[in-house]
């Protein structure tokens, strides 16, 4: 049995503005990412990295192209899955530059919520959240609200939240930008491990060249166009 691709994007395009102000943020983006692969999207500011992430994350629809996630056709020539919320819960995980945890929930609850939103019973959700946070070295921080966690700890909680649902794809927007190099590297190693152990495809936008040795592939972007080159060691 063939394992479906985590991401199968064909000719994705998106623009902002019209006429003289038209900006083609994403041009004819075609690429594939397999499960367990870690891919970095590299490029200068304004090259379309975040636009690509919002299209793949089903936040903004593309103007053209098609997209399959984990074998499911979610976008095709303007049409897209009707229940976006359900699809995001089941197949996608998000990690952001700033951890973007919910400030009124503690670390455990932030992760638990992700499961409960997908109708996992609270007791089971709590157990699974505790387990993944412990695996990321946060067993002593379960009751801490984001405001009293360090930047690295917050980011680990965010990764736990993204991974706990066992999504096919984790989309990360500069997840190491707010961290020092050592902590940034720790985060990348966590991604690497998650890809290997959980089979998730990790696609992350970064400016940070120091961590590229931990990725399988690098997708470079410039003016909305993609070029692919091989990554560092696996």
């Amino acid at each position: 049995m063939t394992v479906p691709l985590a991401i199968d994007a064909r000719s994705l395009a998106r623009h902002y503005g019209e006429g003289n102000r038209r900006v083609d943020a994403l041009k004819n983006a075609t690429f594939e990412i397999a499960r367990g692969e870690v891919v970095a999207i590299l490029g200068p500011s304004g090259s379309g990295k975040t636009t690509l992430l919002t299209v793949l994350g089903l936040i903004n629809p593309p103007d053209a192209g098609s997209l399959r996630i984990d074998g499911h056709e979610v976008l095709r020539e303007g049409a897209r899955v009707t229940n976006l919320a359900l699809f995001r819960r089941r197949y996608l995980g998000f990690v952001f530059q700033r951890s973007n945890l919910i400030p009124f929930l503690n670390a455990l609850e932030n992760v638990q919520l992700s499961l409960e939103l997908d109708d996992v019973p609270p007791r089971e959700a709590r157990g699974r959240a505790r387990e993944i946070l412990t695996s990321l070295g946060l067993a002593e921080r379960l009751d801490y609200v984001p405001a009293i966690l360090s930047g690295g700890e917050q980011q680990r909680v965010a990764i736990a939240r993204a991974l706990v649902n066992a999504p096919a794809v984790v989309l990360a927007d500069e997840p190491t930008a707010a961290l020092d190099s050592e902590r940034g590297r720790q985060i990348m190693e966590i991604f690497r491990r998650a890809a290997r152990e959980r089979g998730a495809a990790i696609l992350f936008v970064t400016h940070d060249h120091r961590t590229l040795d931990l990725v399988d592939r690098v997708i470079e972007m410039e003016d909305g166009a993609l070029t692919v080159r091989a990554g560092g060691s696996t």
Binding site: G57, I59, L84, A85, L86, F87, R88, R89, R90, L92, F94, N100, I102, P103, F104, L113, S114, L117, D118, R161
Partner: peptide
Amino acid sequence: SLALLKLLGA
């Protein structure tokens, strides 16, 4: 937080 909840699929 509400935007985040939406993004998480709430």
